[in-house]
Design a protein around this nucleic acid. Structure first.
Lengths: 207, 207
DNA sequence: ACTATATTGTACCGATTGGTAAATATTCCT
DNA sequence: AGGAATATTTACCAATCGGTACAATATAGT
């Protein structure tokens, strides 16, 4: 919601010896690669360079750490998604989403795929809350895209008989499928081919 | 490879008190819903109606049980995939794959999604072998589809400038995305809309 | 009835899980 | 200099993880 987003920043007491955002970044990488359940506390602590009590003092618990990491993910590696909605035509919107996803999912500097897809897809009951949180985030993206496509339809960009909800679900499925492809080893060029295949048949007007 | 597929069937000793295939079916459901790592031995034993020593005696260990369960999955719930390749046109092939996936992924009698997609997507090192096995299975499907689409291209069903490998990867991504959508709660009708969206733009000749 | 073979249930194993108590260390404020 | 407040380290906790030893039980063949 607000500015520094991570801590109220205490003015008294022993100062924190690590950078919370850098540590969160490291935690994100672990969750990204191993999923919520596959990431153990020792895994996280080692990557973050801190001990468990520091982790708990700073982030609450594993679940809250994950949710914070997802927040960071949405603001950094996945930052292409919502801005893509601002483009002038549905074709440009979808193009930026798919190409952004291709770059992000197969970025050699990050784990493959998308943590919002693979962070907690099939898991035990103890991860139910996290799983639900990711489902909600995926749906939110789809709803936002749907609204943008509805606008495109209203503007005559998309044909009058098109179904924005179905198109948004279709693009959502392709994006999620690209994440799975990336975890299977697909590289950026291969994912861009998928994007291009979708775009070549897109029913909206070209840029 | 061969007939009874599960055990050499002993002729002496105390007879097994449970049906191996039924137990495997139950194990599959647990792995399907919770993933390889999220499914605990007690989870599996309770669903299978047996104790741990029986499980280990009959199936080896958790990893081998999972692989056996996947085998069963490919022969039952996912049995639509390879037969779909036999249809006369690429359009029919893809149609049967996508519609079969829509039905299978959102079948109310089974867990949502596809165990080959979500069984071990992001997990710890201890599941690396299983994860790799699933990657190989996903790729095998994609390769088979690619070969079928190459044949379609050779036959003039698909245009001369089409790229069978890219199309197969695209369909693979959609199939995997449909599995993610199903685990997020999408029903069969919604998944069929995704299938229909793909089919309406398919570059091959109609049936 | 007896033996060989295989499955069963119980009870256990060491390792790892997420999480914490308590003591120590470092800072700011008076 | 002396609190007050916070962070750090070490050591620990109960619960659960995958896996197994062992004794009891059930069958087929002799």
């Amino acid at each position: 919601m607000s500015a520094s987003a991570v801590t109220p920043a205490p003015t008294v007491g022993r100062p924190r010896a690590f950078d919370m955002e850098k540590a969160l970044q490291k935690a994100l990488e672990v969750f990204w690669r191993k999923g919520y359940e596959g990431a153990s506390l020792p895994d996280l602590c080692e990557a973050m360079g801190i001990n468990k009590p520091s982790l708990y003092a700073a982030f609450g618990n594993k679940e809250q750490l994950f949710l914070k990491a997802i927040e960071l993910y949405e603001n950094r590696p996945c930052a292409f998604f919502y801005p893509a909605l601002e483009h002038a035509t549905s074709y440009e919107v979808v193009k930026h989403m798919l190409c952004g996803a291709a770059s992000a999912n197969a970025d050699p500097n990050n784990p493959p795929g998308c943590v919002i897809v693979q962070g907690a897809l099939a898991c035990s009951e103890s991860a139910a809350f996290v799983k639900e949180a990711l489902i909600i985030k995926r749906r939110a993206g789809e709803v936002a895209l749907c609204e943008r496509l509805q606008k495109a339809k209203d503007e005559g960009d998309l044909p009058a008989d098109s179904d924005p909800a179905a198109l948004a679900r279709y693009i959502g499925a392709v994006l999620q499928g690209m994440a799975v492809q990336a975890t299977s080893g697909a590289n950026c060029a291969e994912l861009k081919q998928v994007a291009e295949t979708v775009l070549s048949a897109w029913p909206g007007k070209r840029a």
